[in-house]
Structure formats: C-alpha cells, structure tokens
Design a protein around this nucleic acid. Sequence first.
DNA 1: GCCTATAAATGGAACGTTCCAATAAATCAA
DNA 2: TTGATTTATTGGAACGTTCCATTTATAGGC
Lengths: 352, 352
Amino acid sequence: MASRAKATIFDIAREAGVSKSTVSLVLQGSGLIRPETAVKVRKAIEDVGYVYNRGAANLRKAHSNVIGMVINDLTNPFFAELAVGMERVFQSAGIVPFIGNTAENPVRQEEVLKSLMEQGVAGLIVSPARGTTPGAFRRLEMAGVPVVFAMRRLPESRIPVIAPDNHRGAYLATAHLIGKGHRRLVFFGGSSDLVVYHERLGGFREACETQGIAARDALVVEGETSRRGGIACLETALAMAEPPTAALCFNDAVAFGAMLALRKRGLEPGADFAIVGFDDVAEAEHYMPALTSVAVDSAGLGERAAHVMLKMIQSRTTRAEDHIGAVNLVVRESCGPDRRTRNRPTGTGGAA
Amino acid sequence: MASRAKATIFDIAREAGVSKSTVSLVLQGSGLIRPETAVKVRKAIEDVGYVYNRGAANLRKAHSNVIGMVINDLTNPFFAELAVGMERVFQSAGIVPFIGNTAENPVRQEEVLKSLMEQGVAGLIVSPARGTTPGAFRRLEMAGVPVVFAMRRLPESRIPVIAPDNHRGAYLATAHLIGKGHRRLVFFGGSSDLVVYHERLGGFREACETQGIAARDALVVEGETSRRGGIACLETALAMAEPPTAALCFNDAVAFGAMLALRKRGLEPGADFAIVGFDDVAEAEHYMPALTSVAVDSAGLGERAAHVMLKMIQSRTTRAEDHIGAVNLVVRESCGPDRRTRNRPTGTGGAA
DNA sequence: GCCTATAAATGGAACGTTCCAATAAATCAA
DNA sequence: TTGATTTATTGGAACGTTCCATTTATAGGC
C-alpha cells in the first residue's frame, strides 16, 4: 500500500523542483521563500506523504521541543488531574508532552527517565515514585536537563518543587475538627517514606498542640494510601481501648475507605465519627455523605509546573523557585455537626 | 555544573582508548567484543555522563522501539486502566510507551499523532477521540505504521480493534432487568457520534425485542457520558408521562449520576428504580448501594492490545484480527430485588 | 546599460549513530 | 614456520535534517 521507503526532504525537493534547502526553509516557516514557492513545496509535501523526522532535525538543532511528564500513578484521579493541568498549558504553547507512567515503582521510573532522556527531551516534570533514591536524578542534573518536581519532593534535592501547602492544609482541617469539639483525634494512612506524609502529619500535630490537645490524644495509624488502607485504619482505630472520634485522612481514597468501614459497622460518618479527607478529588463532592476535604487544586498546580518548566527552558537554566500552592478546606457533611452541642449541652466558651 | 556539550560515543572512545565502532558495539550488547574491553568502555560511559541519542540511532536503524499510546481521556479511570494494562506488557518487553492525552478533542489528537509520528514510533495504540473524522488515520496508514484501536472504533476503517463485546454486555444487563420484572426500560446517556453507543444501544434494543418488551416501552435518553449527564437523564425520564422503572446506563459515571439524582428525590436506587452501569470501574463495588455493572476488564483489553501491537511490529504487518473481549454482568445492589414479587404478588411463571 | 542592494534559492558540511567491509591479532593445523 | 581460520577491532559511508556561506535572480539608482 504505502511506498516502503519513507519520503525525505529530497523526495519533496525533486517533486517540487527545488533544492532540499528550500524545502527545509519551508518546513520551518521561514519568511525567506517566495509565497508561490512555498505553496508548491507544501503541495509536494502532501503528495509524497511526508512525515518530518524530528530525530534527524535534533541532530543539528540545539534542542528539541519535547517535554516529558513522569507520573507516579495515572489511575489515581488526583495525579491524572495534575497531568491534565500541565497538558493544558503545553497545548496552548504548541507542545505535545509525552507522559510516562511509573506505577509507583522506582525501577520503572529509572527506565522511563532513561527513555525520555534518550529521546532528547527539553525538560522533565516529575512526580517521583515512592521510594525514589536521592541519587536517581543525578544523571539528569549532569546532563543539564531542566527538571521540576510536582506534588512530591525528594528529601535532599535542589530541584524546584511545585506542591500544595500540605502542612497548612492539615492544620486547617485538624483545627476544624477540634473546633467541632473533638478531643481525641487520629491521622489515618500514608507512610513515612513520603515527604508529603511528614508535611501533612506535621500540620496535624501542630494543630493539636496549639489547640490544646494532649500529645497522647493525637493518634497516628499508618496504612496504605488507598480505600483498602482506609478500611484497615478505621478497624485499627476503633479497636483501641479509648477510640478517637475524628480522623484526618492522608488522602481522599483513605477517607472513602474509612467511611465505608464505618457504614459496615453501622456507624454514620459525620454523626458518629468525623472524617476529613485530603486532595478534594471530584468524587468527594458526590459521596454519601459528601466528604469534607482539603482542596489542593491539582490541575492548577499542573499548570503552574508547566509554566515554570517553559520559563526554565526559555531561560536555559536548571534552577527555579519553589512554588507552594494555596489550599482550602471544603466543609461538607462528613465531619458532622458541632460535637459540643451534642455531647456536652452547655459549652464553656459561649458563641465562639 | 555539567559539561555544556553532550558527550558522544567519540568522547567515550577517546576516554576508553578504543574506536567509536567498538563503543557502538558495546552499547548494543554485541557478543563480539572482548569482555575486558566492554568493561573498560562501560566505565568510560559512566565517567563522561553519556546519554544515548536515540534520534541519531534511528537515522540508521530500520525502526525505533518507541510505541505511542493515544488516550482520549486520562481522567476517566476506565481509560487510565486501559493504559495501565498496556504499560504492563510493554514493561516486560523492555519498552517504554509514550502516552499522549487528547482530552476527547480531535484537533488535539491530530497534534498528538503528528508529534508521535515525528518521533518515529514503531507503532500506535489509539483510543480515538469522539468526533474523529474517518480520514484522520489515513496519513498513518500511508506511512505504514501499525495502528490498533482500543476500546473504540471508527465507522469505516480497516484498522484492527480490541474492544469489549458491547452488544452482548448490554443485552445481558437488559435481560437481567427484564427478568426482574421490569416492563418499561430506558437507556441513559451517550450520543450517536460514538460507535460504542450504537453497539450498547443495539444490545439493549435486541434484549427488549426478544424478551417481549414493546418498542414503545424501550426508551432512550441521550446525554453526556458523565455524572452530570446521568443526573440530567434521570430528571428527563422521571418527568415523562409514563416513567420507566429501570435504566441501563451508557457507563458507570452516568449510573452514579442517576443514582445521585434518585437520592435527591428521596428515591432509593435499587428498591424504587433499578440502575445498571457499564464498565464496572473500581468505584462501582464501593458505592452505596453497590452498582450492578457490566465488567469489561479494561486492563485485560489493554494487555491484549499491547500484545497484538508487539506481534504486528514483529511481523512487519499493518493488519491484524479484531479481538472482542468477553464481558460479564456483575450483579450487586443497584438493580434491587425481584420486581414481580413486589408489584404483583403472584407471578405467572412460578419458581424461575 | 552598469553597478549595487536586496531577495530567493542552493550546495556542502555537520550532527551522533549503525552497519558493512576491511584490517589486525590471536589461534590452530600441518 | 606458514597459510588458513577464527576472534576483536576499526574506518568510512550513510541516515535526514539544519545552518552557513554562496550563488543566482530581481529590482533599484544613476
């Protein structure tokens, strides 16, 4: 069906009766060629079914305009949103980013990074996989390729980071629960190999401290960052001698799991046990009951990351400022009514 | 920090005291070179911080080992699953696929396909965007690049398709509803620019016909294929003079929306109105009530598509058999109890 | 009509790799 | 030893593009 050998600019040149250089100029949209010539060439391009060979071009050109996005888990809508945000700004810049999925696997991540590098990417936006070793990005730094981290960061690294204000988000959510009258709280899910975990847990702890919750009443149950993990966390918490009455969850998936587990025990999320999630994924709003959660605007952070990347490429630098995105607590039904008015009919502080 | 100019095999050759050809052989893992030489070269590769230039290599090599996956909507967990399934088999084949997102936009899709082609991909797995014109893949066919469609197909096209048995899935689900005693049914969501829509709707209609439902009792409400669309569909249906009692939804998102709308009206999904979804996404199982849905095994279809692609590349062909994946109805709570026993205490057929 | 200035088109070298044919070195059979 | 064989290594051409320095065509000024 198709001519076996791929068409090159020479074929176009022959077809249009010009030189290869002229064809090249036309391809680059140079203003140097006469309009009629350009038209003739463009027709020939169509006729021979030409596809541009970017690899060959990059051999001469300083740098490509390919950007790689490395995502740790595409099935998590939270990260998919991030990717979509980035896509949006790249699209309007006429760039098609290539997305690689690492499935939270550092070995796979290494392969993906290597492959992207070999393609000669101009820059890389990465949401690093859990368990990424600090040295994993040394090669990229050596090669002078601009990199930005999105959502997650590595313990010691000079690579710029675009992430939400996890500490503040957790603080706000926890303060809200305490304000509702809860006095024994728990942090559900996540594990300490993630910097994000420490940030969120830190916010939780600080809120407990500054709002007069004793350290022994600020509990922590580690677990998978999934629905399943949330179920397990709740079981653990309720099995305690003195169970908590409210939970801040590492993310929304954990929160959904915890609510599910409550229901299975005949308890009503909100009324019997307060749940707050983190990330505010699209489902949160539609759950029963609707989930109170910390909104981080992942698509917005994606856009931000893309802009930073474009600027880095443009200014040929490998450094940039970190950007910490604002968060806000979206209060819905899962953290229930004010606890003071239920358990202790007369509060101490009055109207506040 | 890094040496500005990128290292090439010549730099490695100089460092290791061998010729560029030897370096090339080592890079390709040829058995021709003496082990000690190979070690020496590999050390040099490390030392100079070399990154392989695949573009240059592809200039000589017959074809690259890059495969592109073009997905119409990454934020839909259903398609994300598909991508993950493909990833899985490519990973074990030592291939890193590049994912491009088209956000259901044919224009963007054109850009993504063009960009992937320019990179010299060896093959393309595509879930085409809604509204893709029939000619959109002509260029690819001309270039002789193997393409397979996953999940979706185009009206008239000779490109091989890997997709679930939509007709049968819809038939099974509809028959189940009819078996439960429903006599006035509706198909919710989707629009006729999608081949999948016709397939599913066809299954619905066939089941109604063969199971003795009058044509005027087999209703159709088109709508967005989202939660929001589902809400709208339900409102429309209940506003009818003679409303249906059960709905087969185009996909799970529509089903979730319909259930939400039922709840808002104080109706209980399952008991008051039966809902069946399509795709069986992970959430379906965890919903309240759990959603009855047609499972299509999208990850499995992804794996299948990847295998077909690998085989096509290997055998240098652009043709392959279609593959229609088995489906099965997962009955949960959202289609409720048997209707006959509720509305007409004495059924006609006895125990069946 | 001639020289100069501008516009348009062109040939050649270079980019970093692979592959082939050729060379050099080592081994073996006699 | 010598020629034949095998094992390792190598130089050169080619891949499809860009970019620079030229060449050729067109127009302008006098």
